[in-house]
Design a protein around this nucleic acid. Structure first.
Length: 466
RNA sequence: GGCGGGGUAGCCAAGUGGUAAGGCCGAGGUCUGCAAAACCUCUAUUCGCGGGUUCGAUUCCCGCCCCCGCCUCCA
């Protein structure tokens, strides 16, 4: 039985999808706002969602996941105008970059990636807002924008456990919002402003653009229906974004919008909040540029439970790299031993469920990885003692296939480049001649090309190390 | 001020009312021409601090200290 810590109840609850057949899981994940390259903090959340999806699938569920692309908001408009590029062209570039980074991190594609500006989504938003206005749950203020009247939704504040009477104005509330009836009312439709330039859509309330919160409500409802099983995002979205989504969606459909809310904690970098001014702001591209691979980044960001703040450090990246090399080594040994042998399906360690059982418990990745590494150590011991049979090794590889289906951290097998092949040939000759000096010099050269060569009783074994 | 998360070995981190998983780093060893890899041994008598409950608490209760996040559009 899978259990999740539901932000709504703040309790661990057994998970069951709404689907009467108990098979399909409807999942909505808040996606990127494509105004620049997404950073590693964003991807921490997307990686958590990927782990969630893959584990649900490992447990036999079919996940129908939607991830939205926010391609119109203050920042996209501001940055596109600053770059003097039309909005669509501007966001297109960062949307493409986003997908590229997702592939680098081996994140599984969502079933649908709706964009806020898709005509069908704008239309859906207008239908929803229109409904809310007619019910007087929303109103058009003097500035032309349409706002949601939060005191018409009794449950507002429930998810975040906020007492609205205690909300005090912060510096972020600008004086230009005085048109609202109540401080907490949020925009559903933003009236066109000169700063919006050519960006805008016609609506019953005049030209304007959608508010951020309504996007998700409209897209989730249009694609997944009035109720979704799991809705995820970063904790920062818990309030007001998700609170607003609940208010809008439930006021519109009259049904409970989301059954399980899962929120991932934020990322710190070297113990501090990531910010451009501190110079500790990293994108996936930045880390690739520093010589790290996608799977190393994936592992580093995935290995701490999503509910905990993760302190991203370069020491942590090295730890990730070293752990993965140990894993690679284990796989290579198993493959060499297994060769073409048929898997021994009766071999108990290869039938172990402990890795997945650990993930059942609110995605306890630390405990799950511990199970993996215990498996690695015990099978290495057996192989050292020559006590593992080929069929057992083959069975363990099948077990690993299943685990890797969730983790996605196996190395991509690299072809040995011709230059390395040549050096290996020369080195083999030197070793036959017992010319150790030359042998060591050639090992250095090979190392310079990014390959480590090990001498075993079966000869040289090269592995790519960077 | 309100709400929430966290303080476990050098670092990351799991965990339970019964005596501390796992990973990385480090030291020594086996193996090796030397390495590498793998394995073995060592590395927290102790889980922020002080009380309490209990036969027994890191785990439950009370108080305190420290770090971090959110409090209206930031994953």
């Amino acid at each position: 039985m899978i259990r999740f810590l539901n932000s709504l109840s703040r309790a661990v609850e057994p998970f069951q999808p709404l689907d009467p057949a108990g098979k399909v899981v409807k999942m909505y994940t808040c996606g990127p706002t494509v105004y620049s390259f997404a950073h590693i903090g964003n991807f921490r959340t997307y990686l958590f969602e990927d782990l969630l999806q893959r584990h649900l699938e490992a447990r036999g569920y079919t996940v129908n996941r939607v991830m939205n692309i926010t391609d119109v908001d203050d920042k996209t408009i501001r940055n596109s105008r600053a770059a003097d590029v039309p909005l669509a062209e501007f966001t297109e570039k960062f949307t493409a970059a986003f997908f590229e980074d997702m592939r680098t991190l081996r994140i599984k594609d969502a079933n649908v990636y709706p964009a806020a500006t898709d005509p069908e989504n704008i239309a859906e938003m207008i239908v929803m807002i229109d409904f809310l206005v007619k019910k007087e749950i929303a109103y058009q203020a003097e500035d032309g924008s349409v706002y949601f009247r939060i005191n018409r939704f009794a449950d507002y504040g429930h998810l975040a456990h906020l007492d609205l009477d205690e909300l005090r104005p912060s510096g972020r509330i600008q004086s230009d919002e005085y048109e609202k009836e109540s401080l907490g009312d949020f925009a559903l439709w933003k009236a066109w402003d000169v700063a919006d330039g050519p960006v805008g859509w016609d609506s019953p309330w005049g030209r304007g653009r959608p508010g951020w919160h309504i996007e998700c409500s409209a897209m989730a409802t249009r694609i997944l229906g009035p109720q979704v099983d799991i809705h995820c995002g970063g904790v920062d979205n818990l309030f007001p974004h998700h609170e607003a989504e609940i208010a809008q969606s439930e006021s519109y459909t009259g049904k409970k919008f989301v059954r399980f809310w899962l929120h991932s904690a934020h990322l710190l970098v070297e113990g501090q909040k990531m910010s451009k001014s501190l110079g500790n702001f990293y994108t996936i591209r930045d880390l690739i540029g520093r010589g790290f691979t996608g799977r190393e980044i994936r592992y580093a960001l995935l290995r701490v439970n999503y509910r905990l703040q993760l302190n991203f450090t370069f020491d942590g990246m090295v730890e990730a790299r070293q752990s993965l090399l140990r894993l690679d080594e284990w796989i290579h040994r198993l493959r060499d031993l297994a060769a073409e042998a048929p898997p021994d399906k009766e071999y108990p360690p290869a039938t172990s469920d402990s890795f997945f059982a650990a993930l059942d418990d609110d995605l306890n990745i630390s405990a799950a990885l511990a199970e993996l590494f215990k498996q690695i150590r015990t099978t290495n011991q057996l192989m050292d003692a020559n006590e593992l049979r080929p069929g057992q090794a083959a069975a363990l590889l099948q077990w690993w296939e299943n685990v890797n289906q969730v983790l996605q951290i196996q190395s991509n097998e690299e072809m040995i480049p011709a230059a390395v092949e040549e050096l290996l040939r020369q080195r083999a000759a030197a070793r036959t001649a017992k010319d150790w000096q030359l042998s060591d010099a050639l090992r250095e050269k090979i190392s310079d090309l990014g390959w480590t060569v090990k001498d075993t009783k079966d000869g040289q074994k090269p592995t790519k190390t960077r």
